[in-house]
Write a protein that binds this DNA or RNA. Structure first.
Lengths: 335, 335
DNA sequence: TCGTTTAATGGAATCGATTCCATGTATTAA
DNA sequence: TTAATACATGGAATCGATTCCATTAAACGA
């Protein structure tokens, strides 16, 4: 590959002049412009991004971390983020954790070794780890849709507590009192998704519902997980079945419904099922899902806006309102 | 951030020694090892990946190009590719074309400017463009699941022609003779997905089916597209409706079925619908999809194997057989 | 004992761009 | 006419690693 030196030589000018030409600096005569461009064309020259990055100490790369891209929610989120970042000339590097905090570590290390200028974390496994990075690089890290226990980390957060509470209320008011709760995280304070779980716990307390520990499921993500839960429920609960299931993912909901119906349990008549995300597919399910819609594109845009602003100091329009970031209960057939 | 120079200074050794230590070269005394490690710990040093990349002329980054990650097929494909590449210490950069060849151009330029060591193209818009890159960097480019008109480009290809032909035969043998054909590409030779289209054309010829030009749809990808097609079909075809629809995507199939049913057209009784991909969701659709399953993980592994081998010259196990790469008709309810 | 490997080490050169500095010429102001 | 700016340019220094080369010390063989 040709280098800037070769271009300079071929054009009969200094490397400085070539660089100035490439970067649209003034102070390059028309005469040399032509010669330089000719040399570039002739040698099919493209500047080495790596060299530029080293010298300029900036990569124009942003890392995005999600737990699993095969989850349509994350795929759509990534899509929105990429579109927005491309607008500003950034490339995007995605990584998936698959719930593995070692993968998260490797991802974050890219900040340290300057592979990326900043990161958007749409998933966090190890809060301590993330926090230590966020403190080391406060402008370079932003949490998206994750619990933020520490005010010192930039983040865009939605009110999942309220949305979950409202959805549970909706189920309750339909006469459901025996709940199954399924989360993608763990059923404790340190887990991601805890504000939803907290809402469930508070809700149960408020209505004095007894929580059956066998009806709490953790780290469930896929339709296959949902099917398994349904089987488990049917097998273990002898004569008592729940009357409502709150999932934290449409995928799980779909698996559940499929398996329940196969066992002649009607949704929503026998059991109501509440999804989460309003994934593209939700409306097309065998029983169209009642679910909580996340405002994906608004979330993505806001996160990118904030990150770019803090990264470059330059003014990036703030055009996302709190209204745009509202979660919304979508009522279909499953509950 | 600390640099290797500062480490050298703090440890009282030369930069060469530090570098040797970092890269596990022999010829570093136990004594200095300790001092260097102490300095590294104290200054929280991490080598700059950019500098290393510049010097070593290799990035350990691979680019993956897909048309749309929100398509579950591509999301799963990406997932499989990423898992495999991580195993070998590579990072992955994804880009989406969204059918825009300018995006493809930008993506490929990363090869030229050394942002990536190689690329996997699971989608191609502009064949000429891709070919010119493939010729400039023959070992660095591999096509995955795309038409390969030129034998000079590395690729892994499946027999979509045969799979499509077989699926059409299946539909035909059920008594369907009036076909709608829907592709994600264009209905011509230059388009991606043409071997499927060719199979359809040959099939029609063989059975002397008349092709209704109003029943050919191009560049359709989403469930919304499917719904629109269904509406279009119903509105325009007065008293004649097709009896079978061959789609090139489960997503489209799902939208179709939804809209047809809303109009009291029964699937598969009135119209049979054939999907493509066997996306995770296919089995959970309102009418579980009859579709053609793509061997995603085998495809991904094979592509990565070939690419890494041609990139590094080193031996990467070839453990994917042709049997693993077979497309398979999955019969459910929609046809 | 002396020549020959082997082990350790420091530091300059290098990868390919950008930017600062020095220098020179042309233009304008007074 | 002269001083002050503006315009153009070449090339060295720099970003932060790796690697080659030169040098020295220790171990080895005969």
């Amino acid at each position: 590959m040709a280098t800037i030196k070769e271009i300079a030589k071929k054009a009969g000018v200094g490397v400085g002049t070539v660089s100035r030409y490439l970067n649209d600096h003034p102070y390059v005569s028309e005469d040399k412009r032509k010669k330089i461009q000719a040399a570039i064309d002739e040698l099919d020259y493209t500047p080495s991004a790596i060299a530029t990055q080293l010298r300029s100490q900036s990569t124009k790369n942003i890392g995005v971390l999600v737990s699993r891209l095969a989850n349509p929610f994350f795929a759509e989120l990534f899509d929105a983020i990429e579109r927005k970042l491309n607008l500003y000339g950034y490339q995007v590097l995605v990584s998936q954790t698959h719930d593995d905090s070692a993968a998260e570590q490797r991802f974050l290390d890219q900040l340290k070794n300057h592979q990326v200028d900043g990161v958007i974390l749409a998933s966090v496994e190890n809060h301590e780890l993330v926090r230590s990075f966020a403190q080391a690089y406060p402008q370079k890290v932003i949490l998206l849709n994750e619990e933020n226990k520490y005010q010192d980390i930039q983040s865009v957060t939605l009110n999942h507590y309220q949305a979950t509470f409202d959805a549970l209320n909706y189920l309750f008011n339909q006469g459901n009192h025996h709940f199954v709760y399924i989360t993608g995280g763990n059923y404790d304070v340190k887990s991601h998704g805890y504000s939803r779980t907290k809402a469930f716990q508070d809700f149960a307390k408020q209505h004095q519902l007894s929580i059956n520990p066998d009806w709490i499921f953790s780290q469930k993500h896929t339709a296959a997980d949902g099917q398994e839960i349904a089987r488990n429920l049917i097998k273990n609960s002898k004569n008592t079945l729940p009357d409502a299931i709150f999932t934290n993912s449409d995928e799980v909901a779909i698996g559940l419904i499929d398996e329940l119906q196969k066992n002649n349990i009607s949704v929503p008549k026998d059991i109501a099922v509440m999804g989460y995300d309003d994934q593209p597919f939700a409306r097309f399910a065998a029983v169209p899902l009642t679910t909580i819609r996340q405002p994906i594109s608004a979330m993505a845009n806001k996160a990118v806006n904030i990150l770019l602003r803090s990264l470059t100091g330059q003014d990036v329009p703030e055009n996302i309102t709190n209204e745009d970031l509202k979660l919304k209960l979508i009522i279909r057939k499953s509950a």
